Every structure is written in structure tokens, then in C-alpha cells.
Simulated assay, not measured.
Amino acid sequence: MLATVLAASAAVLAAPAAGLLGHRALRRAALAERLRITTPNGIDESGFVRIGGIDQWVSIRGEDLRNPVVLEILGGPGASNLVFLPRTRAWERHFTIVRWDMRGAGRTFAATGPAGQGEMSLEQLHRDALEVTEYVRTRLGVPRVVLVANSFGTVLGLRLARSHPELYSAYVGTDQNVIAGGRERSAYDGLVARLRHAGKGKRKELAAVTAMGADKAQWSVEQLSAYNKLVLTTDALSYDTMKTVVIRSLWFSPLHTLRGLRAYLKAMAFSEPLALAAVAVDEWEEGTEFRIPFFVFQGDADVLTPPGPAKRLFDDVTAPVKEFALIRDASHFASFRRPDQFLDLMLAKVLPTCAPRT
């Protein structure tokens, strides 16, 4: 979904100045030290696991194995959450967090490239997610895990939570995507309004967006890329988030070499057709009844996946427990821009629904 926006950083990654490299090395070393887990009952392991017929990267981190287990479903598509580890380090004091680079993403993509990813479909990702869940349950000896999905990952996350309450203790959606079978057009209408307000300076972009129309089922991958880029760069808070949170996290990631960062960007471009495969998903038709606690924590100023549609979906959901909350001063990538607020919500709302471990 965001590959085109992130590609703007490719030139920096390809030919950095010596000074930039030196500063990057110092920051990466400091962040690597911050990521160290030294508690007696902690866990920090990562590596390839055979999932869906291919080797896929799974990371498990936390300071106390007695804490509830969280399985993250990444966004993008193809955007590994591993780059955000330094920003979310505090989460690992309260939860054991599993981060999975699904096929077409992160280290799974980097290991074998496009030829080694196998079937790229929503159905295959669903099967893979169930295998990862079973692996985590066995490896950590837990009956169920908390499902935390962000952005594109919420499409998959809703399906998992709806269909397998025996595997998941709660669903948490952030940057919650609402497609509604193509009926939802709040983000599109908001973009058109911003372009019109910009006047002559955005006349060309306005013409292109209005010519595309709001029906994403009729768009090409290139049109979807151009649309996402405009949505995020025409909004000041979103643009600032891309620069200060996303691209900075990429550049200083202690887990990624320069070659790894290039692979990260290539993975997102490779996986982008999955976003078009999801444009017909209808959350209401698939079902709004959930048999596990259901939470949505949305950025209050998110223009890509606006809070309004997320709240309308939430209002129609039936669940044993449900909570909706806004993350203040947050655009898309809300949980990574405001990780402390997100953690506060997890502790106040989600943690009480998790069975204690002994």
C-alpha cells in the first residue's frame, strides 16, 4: 500500500554520504543496545520457520514469558514491523510479541526474492497465519494469543479473529482498514477536498484523481500507488509521520543492513498487488459477530484509514467485550507514532481480558 511513498527514500539508501553512514552506525549501535533483553525469564529469538511450504521469518521477544503473547499482523502489504522495534521496546515489558515477516515481506522476501515467495493471495496468507499461530502456541505453550493487526493486516486479522476464536484471546485493530465492498470512500473524498483546497498548485493531481474515480476495483496497481502517495503527502501530519517515524525507523534500524533496506522496499513493491486483491472485501458481508474481545485503536487524524469508517464498523460489531479509542495526534501508523498511548490502551483495555499465566 505504501511502497511508492517509501521508494522516495531509495536514493538516500543507494548512495549515502560518508557522514550519514557514520551517524547511522552510531545510532544503530545505540538502538541495538536498547533492544537487548537480559531478564532471567525473557526471550529473544528469531529465525526461519517452515510455513506454507516456504521458510518465513519469525521473531519472538519479551522480558517475561509469563506475559500474554501478542501476534502482530503487519501492514503494507509487505511492510515488516521489525524496523519499529526500537519504538515499541516498552511493549515487550508487558507482552511477549511475535513479529512475522509474511511471504512477500521483510526477511522472508529478502532470503529468496520474488521467485521464492510461492502463492501470493489473501487465502494463502490466511493459511500461513494459522500455521504461524499454531507454531507460536506450541513454542510458547499457550492456548491462545492476542491478535494485533495494523493497516492492510487488519483485512487478514478480521478474518482470523472471526473464524478462529479458539486460537485468539482478543482482536486489536489499529489503522483499521474498512473497505465495505468498495462502498467506503471517505479517504478518497478527503483527498479530493484537500487537492481542491490547494488550488492551482495541485490542479494536475486533482484531475488525475477525479479521472480515476472512487472505485478502486477499476484501478491499476500504479494508480493505487499514486493515490496512496497523494493521500499521505497532502496531509501535513501524515507526511511528517512518514519522514520522522517510518523512514527514520528504516534508516536507523539496527536489524537491517543497507542491502536489507533495499530488499524491504522491493518487498513492498512486489506485494502491492495484494492491496488490489482486497478491494472487494466487505466486512459486513463477511460477518460482524466476534466471539472474542474486540478492540479498535485508531489515529484521530488518520486520512488513509479514517476513524469514521472504523467507528461505524465497530458500532455494528457484536463481541463479548468491545472498546473503541482514538490515539491522539496520530495519523496512519498510529501505534508507531504514539507507541506509549497504544501501550496504555493495551494495558488498560486488552490486558484485563487475557487469562493470567503462571
Rank of each mutant, 00 (worst) to 15 (best):
T257W: 01
T112N: 12
G52M: 07
L71C: 14
Y239E: 07
R99A: 13
D128C: 08
D44I: 03
T244E: 12
A187R: 05
T288C: 13
G287A: 13
L274M: 01
A330R: 01
P339T: 10
R162V: 10
K216H: 04
V83Y: 10
A348L: 12
L326G: 01
A269Q: 13
P16M: 14
E272D: 08
E222I: 05
R248Q: 07
E184W: 02
A7S: 13
L191M: 03
E323M: 04
P254S: 01
E119N: 12
R137P: 00
R144C: 13
A198S: 09
I54Y: 08
Y239W: 01
S9N: 15
R28F: 06
T88H: 10
P320S: 11
F270S: 05
E119Y: 01
K204W: 06
A161Q: 00
D55L: 04
V192G: 06
A263H: 07
H197F: 03
F333S: 12
V172N: 00
S225A: 14
P114A: 15
V281P: 00
R103I: 09
N228G: 08
W251I: 11
L230E: 06
V49W: 11
G118K: 01
K266H: 13
T174L: 03
R248D: 03
D128E: 02
R357Y: 12
R248N: 04
L156Q: 04
A18M: 15
G260P: 11
T4E: 12
L276D: 04
E323T: 07
A14M: 14
G181S: 12
D215F: 02
D300Y: 12
S335Y: 11
D101P: 04
H332V: 06
M120V: 07
G76N: 09
T174M: 08
V69C: 08
R144H: 14
E119C: 08
A11T: 15
S9H: 15
P77S: 07
V98L: 06
